[in-house]
Amino acid sequence: MRRYFLLFMIIISLSLSALGQTEKNKLYIGVAPGITINKLYSSTGYRKDTNYKNESGFSFAIPLRYEFFHWLAVQADPGLISKNYKIVHNAYLDGNTYNIYNNAFINKYLQLPVMAHLSIGGQKLRIFLNAGGFIGYQVGARLEGVNIIIAYYRYDEKYEFDSRKDNRFEYGILGGLGVKYNTKSWTLFAEGRFHYGLSDLQKDYMLHQIPRYNNTFLIQAGILFNFFKSK
């Protein structure tokens, strides 16, 4: 699966490059901060009052856009992105509810999205659609929360990856919709983008494993500068 996905990414990049031989091409580079909301696609099965919950985070990317035509470009957004989620478990005992744990997984990924950038509209104000894929590597994680395993305990600690279980490599597809404002030398844009993870966050280390995937919604805004022009 991973191999097919990489092939798909390469084909997107090459086919878009092949298209852009006839007009004046433009290379843009910029910055794009954003916020994320991540939802874990998984299951807690029959566990009573145990739920995964969405968690917000941040992102920062350095978009690179190579424009073939005014309506078509290829874009890569290398950057750092949070894909956080929570697991919450309550237990009812003697008529009282106890929050046994409320744990946030704060996950940071170094990510490379590559996408086709299609746009329609006027010379300056245009609506665009991004579609492509991404690969990422989980560079760090933290555990934040509280539990009452033995007594009330609040923690915020580095998560030590378990090489038997944790799959730190991630890939998936993405789609985004946004609006941009062009001038001769820069472009302002705002975009909502959805990342659909296709790789299980765990290695296949046990039979009857419950898979886990990230679904990440990103809202970002940024600016791109037309530093270089090519024929």
């Binding site: 299951s43 789609g175 995937y213």
Partner: peptide, 27 residues
Amino acid sequence: RLKIYIILCLLTIITFISCRKNIPEMI
């Protein structure tokens, strides 16, 4: 060409969406 690209993108997305593993039923 734009329409063709949008259709290709949608077909690709539909193909990849089905690539996730099923969540087994837990009894």
